[in-house]
Nucleic acid binder design. Sequence first.
DNA 1: CGTGTAAGGAATTCTGACACG
DNA 2: CGTGTAAGGAATTCTGACACG
Lengths: 101, 101
Amino acid sequence: MADASSYKDKKVIGIGIASELTGLSERQIRYYEERKLIFPDRSKGGTRKYSFADVERLVDIANKMEDGMQTFEIRKEEMKQSDIRSKMLRGQLNAAFKMRK
Amino acid sequence: MADASSYKDKKVIGIGIASELTGLSERQIRYYEERKLIFPDRSKGGTRKYSFADVERLVDIANKMEDGMQTFEIRKEEMKQSDIRSKMLRGQLNAAFKMRK
DNA sequence: CGTGTAAGGAATTCTGACACG
DNA sequence: CGTGTAAGGAATTCTGACACG
Protein backbone atom coordinates (compact mmCIF):
# COMPACT_ATOMS: atom_id res chain seq x y z
CA MET A 1 0.00 0.00 0.00
CA ALA A 2 2.57 2.49 1.10
CA ASP A 3 4.92 0.93 -1.43
CA ALA A 4 5.48 3.61 -4.01
CA SER A 5 7.72 1.33 -6.07
CA SER A 6 5.14 0.52 -8.72
CA TYR A 7 6.34 -0.60 -12.11
CA LYS A 8 5.31 2.75 -13.49
CA ASP A 9 7.74 4.72 -11.39
CA LYS A 10 10.79 2.47 -11.42
CA LYS A 11 13.62 4.10 -13.32
CA VAL A 12 14.83 1.13 -15.33
CA ILE A 13 14.64 2.16 -18.99
CA GLY A 14 17.67 3.19 -21.00
CA ILE A 15 17.57 6.13 -23.38
CA GLY A 16 17.63 3.86 -26.42
CA ILE A 17 14.42 2.11 -25.39
CA ALA A 18 12.89 5.41 -24.25
CA SER A 19 13.60 6.72 -27.72
CA GLU A 20 11.89 3.73 -29.31
CA LEU A 21 8.87 3.98 -27.03
CA THR A 22 8.34 7.68 -27.59
CA GLY A 23 9.49 8.13 -31.15
CA LEU A 24 11.74 10.95 -30.01
CA SER A 25 15.44 11.06 -30.86
CA GLU A 26 17.96 10.61 -28.07
CA ARG A 27 19.09 14.13 -28.80
CA GLN A 28 15.59 15.46 -28.12
CA ILE A 29 15.24 13.50 -24.90
CA ARG A 30 18.57 14.77 -23.61
CA TYR A 31 17.65 18.31 -24.59
CA TYR A 32 14.37 18.18 -22.66
CA GLU A 33 16.37 17.14 -19.63
CA GLU A 34 18.68 20.09 -20.15
CA ARG A 35 15.60 22.28 -20.19
CA LYS A 36 14.41 20.74 -16.89
CA LEU A 37 11.38 18.98 -18.31
CA ILE A 38 12.40 15.44 -17.45
CA PHE A 39 14.53 14.00 -14.65
CA PRO A 40 15.98 10.54 -15.23
CA ASP A 41 18.07 8.66 -12.69
CA ARG A 42 21.66 7.81 -13.47
CA SER A 43 23.45 4.49 -13.22
CA LYS A 44 26.79 4.41 -11.43
CA GLY A 45 28.44 4.76 -14.80
CA GLY A 46 26.32 7.77 -15.69
CA THR A 47 23.79 6.30 -18.10
CA ARG A 48 20.24 7.70 -17.92
CA LYS A 49 17.38 5.57 -16.60
CA TYR A 50 13.72 6.44 -17.18
CA SER A 51 10.44 5.13 -15.74
CA PHE A 52 7.27 4.41 -17.71
CA ALA A 53 5.88 7.56 -16.09
CA ASP A 54 8.83 9.44 -17.58
CA VAL A 55 8.12 7.91 -20.98
CA GLU A 56 4.52 9.11 -20.76
CA ARG A 57 5.68 12.55 -19.76
CA LEU A 58 7.97 12.58 -22.79
CA VAL A 59 5.05 11.75 -25.06
CA ASP A 60 3.11 14.57 -23.43
CA ILE A 61 6.02 16.93 -24.00
CA ALA A 62 6.27 15.81 -27.61
CA ASN A 63 2.60 16.65 -28.17
CA LYS A 64 3.00 20.11 -26.71
CA MET A 65 6.08 20.75 -28.81
CA GLU A 66 4.06 19.80 -31.88
CA ASP A 67 1.50 22.37 -30.84
CA GLY A 68 4.23 24.97 -31.08
CA MET A 69 4.76 25.31 -27.35
CA GLN A 70 8.29 26.16 -26.21
CA THR A 71 10.20 24.22 -23.54
CA PHE A 72 9.97 27.24 -21.29
CA GLU A 73 6.19 27.22 -21.41
CA ILE A 74 5.96 23.46 -21.00
CA ARG A 75 8.15 23.60 -17.93
CA LYS A 76 5.75 26.01 -16.28
CA GLU A 77 2.72 23.96 -17.20
CA GLU A 78 4.30 20.72 -16.02
CA MET A 79 5.07 22.08 -12.57
CA LYS A 80 2.93 20.88 -9.70
CA GLN A 81 0.41 23.37 -8.35
CA SER A 82 2.24 23.35 -5.04
CA ASP A 83 5.48 24.23 -6.74
CA ILE A 84 3.83 27.05 -8.60
CA ARG A 85 2.31 28.40 -5.41
CA SER A 86 5.56 28.30 -3.50
CA LYS A 87 7.38 29.98 -6.36
CA MET A 88 4.70 32.67 -6.63
CA LEU A 89 4.85 33.27 -2.91
CA ARG A 90 8.61 33.51 -3.06
CA GLY A 91 8.29 35.94 -5.93
CA GLN A 92 5.94 38.16 -3.97
CA LEU A 93 8.18 38.08 -0.93
CA ASN A 94 11.14 39.07 -3.06
CA ALA A 95 9.15 41.87 -4.58
CA ALA A 96 8.03 43.12 -1.19
CA PHE A 97 11.58 42.95 0.12
CA LYS A 98 12.93 44.95 -2.77
CA MET A 99 10.28 47.65 -2.29
CA ARG A 100 11.45 48.24 1.26
CA LYS A 101 14.97 48.94 0.08
CA MET B 1 -8.82 -3.34 -23.05
CA ALA B 2 -7.45 -5.80 -25.55
CA ASP B 3 -4.16 -3.95 -25.24
CA ALA B 4 -1.78 -6.50 -23.78
CA SER B 5 1.05 -3.97 -23.70
CA SER B 6 0.92 -3.31 -19.98
CA TYR B 7 4.00 -1.95 -18.26
CA LYS B 8 4.50 -5.33 -16.68
CA ASP B 9 5.04 -7.15 -19.95
CA LYS B 10 7.05 -4.62 -21.92
CA LYS B 11 10.57 -5.88 -22.51
CA VAL B 12 12.52 -2.76 -21.74
CA ILE B 13 14.97 -3.66 -18.97
CA GLY B 14 18.65 -4.31 -19.60
CA ILE B 15 20.46 -7.17 -17.91
CA GLY B 16 22.36 -4.79 -15.64
CA ILE B 17 19.16 -3.40 -14.14
CA ALA B 18 17.59 -6.86 -14.06
CA SER B 19 20.59 -7.97 -12.04
CA GLU B 20 20.13 -5.10 -9.61
CA LEU B 21 16.41 -5.71 -9.24
CA THR B 22 16.77 -9.44 -8.60
CA GLY B 23 20.06 -9.62 -6.79
CA LEU B 24 21.18 -12.28 -9.27
CA SER B 25 24.46 -12.00 -11.16
CA GLU B 26 24.36 -11.41 -14.91
CA ARG B 27 26.01 -14.80 -15.26
CA GLN B 28 23.14 -16.45 -13.43
CA ILE B 29 20.50 -14.66 -15.49
CA ARG B 30 22.17 -15.66 -18.75
CA TYR B 31 22.50 -19.23 -17.54
CA TYR B 32 18.79 -19.47 -16.71
CA GLU B 33 18.10 -18.36 -20.25
CA GLU B 34 20.42 -21.07 -21.55
CA ARG B 35 18.39 -23.54 -19.50
CA LYS B 36 15.16 -22.23 -21.05
CA LEU B 37 13.76 -20.71 -17.88
CA ILE B 38 13.55 -17.13 -19.08
CA PHE B 39 13.06 -15.58 -22.52
CA PRO B 40 14.18 -11.99 -22.97
CA ASP B 41 13.80 -10.03 -26.16
CA ARG B 42 16.87 -8.81 -28.02
CA SER B 43 17.69 -5.35 -29.29
CA LYS B 44 18.91 -5.02 -32.85
CA GLY B 45 22.42 -5.10 -31.54
CA GLY B 46 21.77 -8.24 -29.55
CA THR B 47 21.42 -6.93 -26.00
CA ARG B 48 18.85 -8.67 -23.78
CA LYS B 49 15.66 -6.88 -22.72
CA TYR B 50 13.48 -8.08 -19.84
CA SER B 51 10.00 -7.14 -18.61
CA PHE B 52 8.95 -6.64 -15.00
CA ALA B 53 7.15 -9.96 -15.35
CA ASP B 54 10.47 -11.51 -16.32
CA VAL B 55 12.12 -9.93 -13.31
CA GLU B 56 9.46 -11.47 -11.07
CA ARG B 57 9.97 -14.81 -12.72
CA LEU B 58 13.69 -14.51 -12.05
CA VAL B 59 13.04 -13.88 -8.37
CA ASP B 60 10.79 -16.92 -8.36
CA ILE B 61 13.51 -18.98 -10.01
CA ALA B 62 16.04 -17.71 -7.48
CA ASN B 63 13.82 -18.87 -4.63
CA LYS B 64 13.45 -22.31 -6.10
CA MET B 65 17.19 -22.59 -6.66
CA GLU B 66 17.70 -21.72 -3.00
CA ASP B 67 15.38 -24.57 -2.13
CA GLY B 68 17.76 -26.89 -3.90
CA MET B 69 15.66 -27.29 -7.01
CA GLN B 70 17.53 -27.85 -10.28
CA THR B 71 16.93 -25.84 -13.44
CA PHE B 72 15.49 -28.95 -15.07
CA GLU B 73 12.83 -29.28 -12.40
CA ILE B 74 12.04 -25.57 -12.40
CA ARG B 75 11.55 -25.61 -16.13
CA LYS B 76 8.91 -28.28 -15.83
CA GLU B 77 7.13 -26.47 -13.01
CA GLU B 78 7.20 -23.13 -14.82
CA MET B 79 5.55 -24.50 -17.93
CA LYS B 80 1.95 -23.54 -18.54
CA GLN B 81 -0.63 -26.26 -17.96
CA SER B 82 -1.53 -26.10 -21.64
CA ASP B 83 2.06 -26.62 -22.60
CA ILE B 84 2.34 -29.55 -20.29
CA ARG B 85 -0.81 -31.11 -21.69
CA SER B 86 0.29 -30.70 -25.29
CA LYS B 87 3.68 -32.16 -24.49
CA MET B 88 2.13 -35.06 -22.63
CA LEU B 89 -0.21 -35.69 -25.52
CA ARG B 90 2.66 -35.56 -27.93
CA GLY B 91 4.57 -37.94 -25.73
CA GLN B 92 1.70 -40.40 -25.70
CA LEU B 93 1.31 -40.18 -29.44
CA ASN B 94 4.98 -40.82 -29.91
CA ALA B 95 4.82 -43.75 -27.57
CA ALA B 96 1.81 -45.16 -29.39
CA PHE B 97 3.50 -44.66 -32.72
CA LYS B 98 6.63 -46.46 -31.59
CA MET B 99 4.62 -49.39 -30.30
CA ARG B 100 3.15 -49.94 -33.74
CA LYS B 101 6.57 -50.21 -35.27
C1' DC C 1 25.31 -28.63 -12.25
C1' DG C 2 25.63 -23.87 -11.41
C1' DT C 3 28.50 -19.94 -11.27
C1' DG C 4 32.83 -17.01 -11.19
C1' DT C 5 36.19 -14.89 -14.08
C1' DA C 6 39.51 -13.00 -17.60
C1' DA C 7 39.41 -11.93 -22.75
C1' DG C 8 38.38 -9.49 -26.81
C1' DG C 9 35.01 -7.36 -29.32
C1' DA C 10 30.68 -5.06 -30.37
C1' DA C 11 26.72 -2.24 -29.06
C1' DT C 12 25.20 1.58 -26.21
C1' DT C 13 25.56 5.95 -24.11
C1' DC C 14 27.92 10.29 -22.69
C1' DT C 15 29.59 15.07 -23.23
C1' DG C 16 30.89 19.28 -25.66
C1' DA C 17 30.89 21.44 -29.97
C1' DC C 18 29.66 23.07 -34.59
C1' DA C 19 25.81 23.84 -37.75
C1' DC C 20 21.39 25.78 -39.18
C1' DG C 21 18.08 28.99 -38.34
C1' DC D 1 15.22 27.75 -30.00
C1' DG D 2 15.32 23.00 -31.05
C1' DT D 3 17.68 19.36 -33.22
C1' DG D 4 21.06 16.84 -36.33
C1' DT D 5 25.67 15.16 -36.55
C1' DA D 6 30.67 13.76 -36.31
C1' DA D 7 34.19 12.89 -32.50
C1' DG D 8 36.43 10.53 -28.91
C1' DG D 9 35.88 8.17 -24.87
C1' DA D 10 33.66 5.51 -21.25
C1' DA D 11 30.18 2.23 -19.62
C1' DT D 12 27.48 -1.81 -20.83
C1' DT D 13 26.75 -6.19 -22.77
C1' DC D 14 27.93 -10.32 -25.60
C1' DT D 15 29.97 -14.90 -26.50
C1' DG D 16 32.96 -18.87 -25.77
C1' DA D 17 36.08 -20.87 -22.69
C1' DC D 18 38.49 -22.44 -18.54
C1' DA D 19 37.88 -23.48 -13.65
C1' DC D 20 35.82 -25.79 -9.68
C1' DG D 21 33.13 -29.30 -8.20
